[in-house]
Write a protein that binds this DNA or RNA. Sequence first.
DNA 1: TGAATATATGATAATATATTCATATGTTCA
DNA 2: TGAACATATGAATATATTATCATATATTCA
Lengths: 98, 98
Amino acid sequence: MGTASVSEDELIDLAELFKIFADSTRIKILYFLMDGEKNVTELSESLSMNQSAVSHQLKILKVNKLVSARRDGKAMFYDLADDHVKSILAKGKEHIEE
Amino acid sequence: MGTASVSEDELIDLAELFKIFADSTRIKILYFLMDGEKNVTELSESLSMNQSAVSHQLKILKVNKLVSARRDGKAMFYDLADDHVKSILAKGKEHIEE
DNA sequence: TGAATATATGATAATATATTCATATGTTCA
DNA sequence: TGAACATATGAATATATTATCATATATTCA
């Protein structure tokens, strides 16, 4: 590709990564999780969305390793997987507030 | 919303911003532009894509102010609009290379 | 064990998105 | 002016994505 050290495959992966952030439901979930881990019921109440929709989106976030999950009894608690997630969100926020 | 200082509208805008990065054609265009401004013909040759597809994507990038455009004779030269674009791409790249 | 609770999943329908094709618009220069 | 070149645009098709509904799969506890 044009710029040295970035392969076409990496660029495709990069687009895939941004695709995960490219949905307002998922962004809201990630922001809620910045306050600390939450279970599915808490998230769907905060989002005013049905549980199934939230679970579907959590799965996408988990498969793509943006969140981690642990079970506590009947509940599943989700949390941000790492600090990259926070800093990507922060960079984006900087841009829209420019 | 959950985290103080971030409104629901801002989160929706943030998702809209990431949506623009969420396409491999657009990501490739942005990366090519990191080498400096390019015209539409150069971009479509580098991408091996037809000119119309590239113009459509350039329009999306321009409307969303991620690239700027200037005319030089018959050609339109596009360039990255600002450094936020670079740093958002860099943050994303960091994550996929972790 | 079985009822109650919490979450996950598959199928479907609605919507959004990207690419292509055909063509329009803008620019240069002989 | 008009031919040649560069880019933009509208419509159509193909594909991807999301939310919903119905239901399946844990897990707890009486």
